[in-house]
Amino acid sequence: MSDALKELIYKIADDQFILGHRNSEWTGFGPMLEEDIAFSSMAQDKIGHSFALYTMLRELGEQDPDTVAFTRNANQFHNCIFVELPNGEYDFSLVRHFLFDTAEALRFEMLLNSSYEPLALLAKKIRGELRYHTIHANTFLKKLGSGTEESISRLQKSLDYSLPYAMGMFEPSPYESELISEGIFGGEEKLREQWTKKLRK
C-alpha cells in the first residue's frame, strides 16, 4: 500500500507545488493590483498545501520537504503537464485556475473519506481554502465571460487550448486499483466524471 499511497501524494503535491510556482509569477504583473494579490494568495495556499503533503511523505520515509521539492530533477516530478505550462496571458492563467481548482476541490472532497487518516484530516483542513479559490475562479470567469467581445473570445480560445491538457490531471496511477480497493482514493475516473458534471452546470 505504501508505494500506491506515496505515488498519489507525490502527484497531488507536485501539481500544487508547480502551479503555486506559476501563480506566484503573477506577483507584480497582474492586470490590476487586486488580481496580483489574489494570485499571490492562491500561490501561497498551493505551496503551503504541497508543503503539508511533502511533510506527510516524510512520515512515509521520503526525504525532507525542502530536499524533495527543490532538489529533484525534472523527470522525477509527478505533476501533469497542464500545471507546468507558462502563464501566458491572463485568460489562459484564469482558465487553468478554473479547471484545476474545480478538480482540486472535488479531489479533496473525495479524500475526506480516505482510509488513510492523515490525508482525510488534511482534506478537511484544505477544503475551506479551496472554496475561496473556486469562488474567485467562478466570479472572474462569469464576469469576463460576459464582458466584451474580446474577453469572451479570449476565454473561449484558452478553454479550447486547455481542455486537452486538463485531461492530464486525471491520469490514472499505476496503482489505481489498489488505491480504490484500499479505500485511499476513489479514483481518477470517478473524479473526472464529477468534474465533467460540474463543468456542464
Binding site: 510556482h21 506566484s24 509569477e25 506577483t27 507584480g28 493590483l33 487586486e34 496580483d36 494579490i37 499571490s40 494568495s41 500561490a43 501561497q44 505551496i47 503551503g48 508543503f51 520537504p65 525542502d66 521539492a69 527543490f70
Partner: peptide
Amino acid sequence: WITRAPGFKRKMALMAKVQDEVGHAQ
C-alpha cells in the same frame, strides 16, 4: 526572487511579503 527563494520557509515568507507591498500600493 520568489521563484528562486531557498526553501519553503523563505519562499512562503517572501511571497507574503511582496504581496503586502502590492497591497500597500492598493
